[in-house]
Design a protein around this nucleic acid. Structure first.
Lengths: 207, 207
DNA sequence: CACACTTTTGGTAGTGACTCTCATTTAGGT
DNA sequence: ACCTAAATGAGAGTCACTACCAAAAGTGTG
C-alpha cells in the first residue's frame, strides 16, 4: 500500500522532473523555430513532435493545444508579484507602471527573446491574438483584486474595476497592430508606448 | 457576353436573394436553439446543417466557422453610426455613452433577444469569448478614429487612443464574467453597469 | 416555352487538431 | 533485482474545415 506517501508529500525533484522540463523546453523551442521558418499555420503538430523527437500524443500531454505553445509563459505571475512589492503609498496607476517596469527587468536576455517572439506571434496570428487578449483580460482582473487590497476597498468596487479596466484597454489599444501606432510589431518601444499611455491615463486623460 | 450587366448594377433583389436570406436565418436560428438545448460544444455542425435542412457544405458557405454563427451581428456598425450622429460639442466619453444608449434603442425586441443570446454565449464559451474580445477591440479602434475626427486630432494621436482604450477596457472589465460584478450573465443591468463605469471614467477616475 | 448561362447546392475525399484507450517503457524507492 | 507509479507511444476515432466536381435551380433571351 502507498498509504504513507500521502499526497505527493515526498516528491523530491528528481531526474524525472528535470527530464520533463527539458522535454517541455525542447518542444517549445522547436515549435517556435518552425513557426519562424514556415509560419504558424504552415506547421503541423506532427512536425513539431517529430522535431522534438516525441510522439504527437506526448506533445498534447505537455501543451493542451497548439496555441498554448506560444501562450504559456509565466510573465503574468511575475507582473503580479511585482505589483505586490510596490510601496503601499503609490497611487494605483503609478504602482502598475512601476510593476510593469520591474517585471520586465527580471527577464533574462534569453527570456526576453522568447518573450518578444511569442508577442510577435500573438499579434500576427488571429487565433493566438484572441486568446492572448482573453488571458490578458483575465490577468488584469486579478490585478484589480490586488489593487483593491492596496487601497482597502471591496474587491468588486466599481471604481477599482474601472481603473484596472482602463489600464487593460490602454495596453490593448497601444499594443495591437490595428493602428499605425503599433506598426513596429512588438519592439522595445512597444513598452515605451505603454508607459507613455499609462502616464496619460494617470494624468486624468482630459483632452 | 454579360457586358451590359456591369458590376451588379442591375441586380434586382430576386427570388435568389430572398432564399439566401431565409437559409441564412434558418441556419442561425436552428444553431442557437441547438446550442441552448445541448450546449455549444455538444452541438456539431452536421447537426445544425441537418436541422436547417442543408448540407454541411452549405453551412460553411454561409458561415466561415461555427463561431461565426454566434458572432456575426451588425451591432458594431450601428454603434458606429450612432456615434457619428452625436452633437460635436459633446466630450468624447459623453458622446460614447450617448451612442451606446442610442444604438441599443434601435434594437427591435426580436433583435434584442438574439443579441442577449449571443452575448450569453460570448461570455460562457471560451473560444467565442476570445473572438468577441478581439472584435470588440477592433471596433473600439475604429471608434478611436471617429473620436479623433470629432476633436480634430490626428488619427493616431496618443491621447485619443488612450481614451478609446480606456473605454474598451472598462467595457470588457465590467462585462466579462470573471468577477462577481457580472454574475448575472448579460442581463439588462450589464448595460447599466457599463454606463455607470463610463460615468466614473468620465469623472476622471481619481480614487 | 425552350435555351444557354450563372449561381447555388450536395457529395466525396481529404487534412489536421485533438481525445481516448491500452500496452510498453522507464524512473524511484525497497 | 523487484515493485510501483508515472511517462510514453501507437492506434482508432471525432470533428471542424477545405477543395473539388457534378447535379440542380434561378435568370434573362429568342
Amino acid at each position: 500500500m502507498t498509504d504513507m506517501l500521502g499526497a505527493g508529500e515526498r516528491t523530491r525533484e528528481g531526474l524525472r522532473e528535470r527530464k520533463k522540463a527539458r522535454t517541455r523546453a525542447s518542444i517549445r523551442e522547436h515549435a517556435l523555430r518552425l513557426f519562424r521558418e514556415q509560419t504558424y499555420q504552415g506547421t503541423t503538430v506532427e512536425q513539431i513532435a517529430a522535431a522534438a523527437e516525441v510522439s504527437p500524443s506526448t506533445f498534447f500531454r505537455y501543451f493542451p493545444t497548439k496555441e498554448d505553445v506560444v501562450l504559456r509563459d509565466d510573465f503574468d505571475a511575475r507582473l503580479f508579484e511585482a505589483l505586490e512589492r510596490q510601496p503601499p503609498g503609490l497611487a494605483p496607476i503609478s504602482a502598475i507602471r512601476a510593476a510593469v517596469k520591474d517585471a520586465l527587468a527580471t527577464l533574462t536576455p534569453q527570456e526576453w527573446v522568447e518573450f518578444r517572439e511569442s508577442a510577435d506571434l500573438s499579434f500576427s496570428v488571429p487565433e493566438i491574438r484572441s486568446r492572448a487578449l482573453d488571458e490578458l483580460a483575465h490577468t488584469v482582473q486579478l490585478m484589480a483584486d490586488a489593487l483593491a487590497k492596496r487601497v482597502g476597498r471591496a474587491p468588486d468596487d466599481l471604481a477599482v474595476r474601472v481603473i484596472a479596466g482602463a489600464v487593460l484597454g490602454v495596453i490593448i489599444t497601444v499594443t495591437m497592430p490595428w493602428t499605425d501606432l503599433a506598426q513596429d510589431k512588438g519592439g522595445e518601444d512597444a513598452f515605451r508606448r505603454v508607459d507613455e499611455a499609462l502616464a496619460l491615463l494617470e494624468a486624468g486623460l482630459a483632452l
